[in-house]
């Protein structure tokens, strides 16, 4: 964790160069489901002040991320490690006076970062489990057996084959398949 904080803090301190601005970024965002209202943000700060993660993190600030995106600092937003700290508690979404759907905007940032290949390990593990079992976690055989003695009905079977079929053509999924093939 310390590593994440330090790196991001340094990132933030680097002076911004004119070449970093991508004036089209905000319009691209506006077209993506969840981020339609990003331009409505008037920087009131409600999201950051009510964000439980911001309370304990030195670097995670939803308002700042939205401001940076409005300014067109695309790479800074998408490469920010702190992006992945959001707990998706939706407090910001409910309280934003401008109906920005802040948590959805953060999700859009993360999706774009993931498309560039920036995906934290937990998500890779869950994806692997999904295409192997249908469940997001590898449920140990022991647990499944224990259900009988606990008086629980058998676990519904996941159907990885149908999952692979329905997800074909989804960028993220094709990427996981590639990892699988590389293994």
């Amino acid at each position: 964790m310390t590593e994440v904080t330090t790196k991001s803090a340094q990132q933030g301190k680097e002076p911004i160069r004119a070449s970093e601005f991508d004036p089209k970024f905000k319009y691209e965002l506006q077209k993506i489901h969840g981020a339609e209202n990003i331009l409505r943000c008037f920087q009131c700060g409600t999201c950051t002040s009510d964000c439980p993660i911001a309370r304990f993190s030195d670097t995670y600030r939803p308002r700042t991320l939205i401001h940076m995106a409005q300014l067109g600092l695309k790479d800074r937003v998408l490469n920010s490690d702190t992006l992945w700290l959001c707990a998706a508690c939706f407090t910001c979404t409910d309280r934003c006076p401008q109906d920005v759907e802040v948590a959805a905007v953060i999700r859009v940032f993360r999706n774009l970062a993931a498309e560039k290949g920036c995906i934290p390990q937990v998500f890779k593990d869950q994806a692997q489990s999904l295409i192997e079992t249908g469940y997001a976690y590898m449920i140990p055989e022991l647990r499944i057996k224990k259900r009988v003695s606990q008086g629980l009905p058998p676990l519904p079977k996941g159907n990885p084959e149908t999952i692979r079929k329905v997800l074909r053509g989804v960028k993220f999924f094709d990427r996981i398949q590639q990892w699988g093939d590389q293994k």
Binding site: A114, K171, F172
Partner: peptide, 17 residues
Amino acid sequence: PEFNCCGLPFDPVSHET
């Protein structure tokens, strides 16, 4: 009868998934 993950864990990386 059959099940798969609700999808939530994958929203951060792929809304479409």
